[in-house]
Simulated assay, not measured.
Amino acid sequence: MSTNKPSKINKLLGLQPPGVVLTSNWLSEQGYSPELLRKYRNSQWLFSIGTGAMIRANDQIDYLGAIYSLQQQLNLSIHPGAKTALSIQGRIHFLDFSEKEIYLFGNAKESLPVWFVNYDWGVKINYYTSSFLPADVGMILTEKKENFDLKISSPARAIIECLFLAPQSQDLMECFQIMQGLNNLHPQKTQQLLELCTSVKVKRLFLYLAEKSGHAWFKYLNVENIDLGKGNRSLVKNGIYIKKYKLTVPREMEKNEYPDL
Rank of each mutant, 00 (worst) to 15 (best):
E252T: 00
V137Y: 15
V236D: 11
M1Y: 15
C162A: 14
L15T: 08
F97E: 14
D136L: 02
D96V: 12
I140A: 04
K230D: 10
C175T: 06
L194Q: 07
L133F: 15
D136F: 06
D59P: 10
I49G: 15
L13Y: 07
K145M: 00
L235F: 10
I152D: 10
F176A: 11
P34Q: 03
Y40K: 03
G19W: 04
F218W: 09
C175H: 05
G19H: 00
L104F: 01
Y63P: 00
F97M: 13
C162K: 09
N118G: 08
L133A: 14
F105E: 13
P6Q: 10
Q30T: 01
K219C: 11
P250Q: 03
P17I: 08
S28G: 13
Q168K: 12
N42D: 03
I152V: 04
L95A: 14
E211K: 15
P6D: 05
T129R: 15
Y40C: 00
D171H: 08
G52A: 05
S43G: 09
I61G: 02
S28V: 06
R56D: 01
L196R: 14
T142F: 02
T51E: 09
I226P: 12
L13M: 10
Q180L: 01
Y32R: 07
S43C: 00
S69D: 01
A53P: 11
F97D: 13
W121L: 06
N256G: 03
Q177H: 04
P34I: 04
C197A: 06
L104A: 04
L247C: 07
D62H: 03
I67H: 06
G214T: 00
D120M: 02
G239W: 07
N183W: 02
D96G: 13
Y258D: 08
L193Q: 13
K145P: 05
